[in-house]
């Protein structure tokens, strides 16, 4: 079984800088980290691999690959994923991919998947902390023509041609099932990514990261990057904080009266 985890390099702080001219996120590659939701996805993939490796497990070996579209420096993050237990890594890197919206990104990732051994399961983070769209996973599923389960909190069962997961839904979680191959998008709280061992770090540093440019990925230039992005960002801005906090003090009775006044004063 082949599990592919799509990972994205994001700024290490939540302060996203926007390019005021192109309205795209500024990526200088400095201090980029793996999107925290994707680290949870990677951990779930590694757990599937671990479970298959356990004694007495129904023996279909599992391999885990990581796939990313990004600037050349993203290779560093893929090596980090390898150090934690991934077996192979592919980086889609080409100027032609730059400025991609979610559609162009998911197209590029689908092209990348086509260059890898067929994936039984594609795991993505539920969303990325910089863009916050949560669109990539479902769009990849659309591009591949396979089912997608979003907001996965826990893996219940993988194998025998299907996957069962607990996913977030209004008011709690629900059990969902999909035939393989499938795409899952993973919630951040699903798992904490393991730390690498020294042996893992060595593997990660020595392993080959396959870097594919657009032609090598078999990507149609018209569907990549800015050219392939129908999304038009008209304006981007940092939202102003509009809510105010009122401190309620005094005895319990006084506080209760103040809260009642506040509620009355609100136009609900």
């Amino acid at each position: 079984m082949h599990v592919v985890v799509c990972v994205k390099a994001v700024p290490s702080t939540t302060e996203v800088r926007m390019d005021t001219v192109t309205h795209t996120i500024v990526r200088d590659g400095r201090q980029a980290v793996i999107n925290p939701f994707d680290t949870a996805a990677l951990e779930l993939a590694l757990r599937i691999k671990d479970a298959a490796g356990e004694k007495g497990a129904p023996a279909e070996p599992v391999s885990v690959s990581v796939l990313s579209m990004g600037i050349p420096d993203t290779e560093r993050l893929l090596r980090d994923a390898l150090s934690r237990g991934a077996d192979a890594a592919v980086l889609l890197s080409d100027r032609a991919f730059a400025g991609a919206d979610t559609l162009a990104t998911s197209y590029a990732l689908a092209c990348g998947l086509a260059q890898m051994p067929p994936a039984d399961l594609v795991l993505c983070g539920k969303m990325a902390v910089d863009g916050d769209t949560a669109q990539i996973g479902p769009e990849i599923a659309g591009a591949l023509g396979v089912p997608c389960v979003t907001d996965v909190r826990e893996l219940a069962e993988v194998g025998a041609g299907r996957v069962r997961v607990w996913r977030g839904c209004e008011g709690g979680t629900e059990l969902a099932e999909a035939p393989l191959p499938a795409v899952l998008t993973v919630a951040k709280e699903a798992a904490d990514l393991r730390m690498p061992s020294i042996a893992g770090v060595r593997f990660g540093e020595r392993a080959r990261v396959r870097v594919l440019d657009a032609p090598a990925a078999g990507a149609d230039p018209a569907r990549c990057g800015l050219a392939g992005s129908p999304t038009q960002v008209v304006r981007s801005f940092v939202p102003q904080r509009t809510s105010v906090a009122v401190r309620v003090e005094g005895t319990v009775a006084e506080q209760a009266a103040q809260v009642a006044d506040l509620i009355e004063g609100m136009t609900l």
């Binding site: 980290v33 730390m195 690498p196 061992s197 042996a199 770090v201």
Partner: peptide, 9 residues
């Protein structure tokens, strides 16, 4: 060396 946790991030 497998029983190690390396912190690089």
């Amino acid at each position: 060396e497998d029983a190690t946790w390396v912190a690089r991030t």
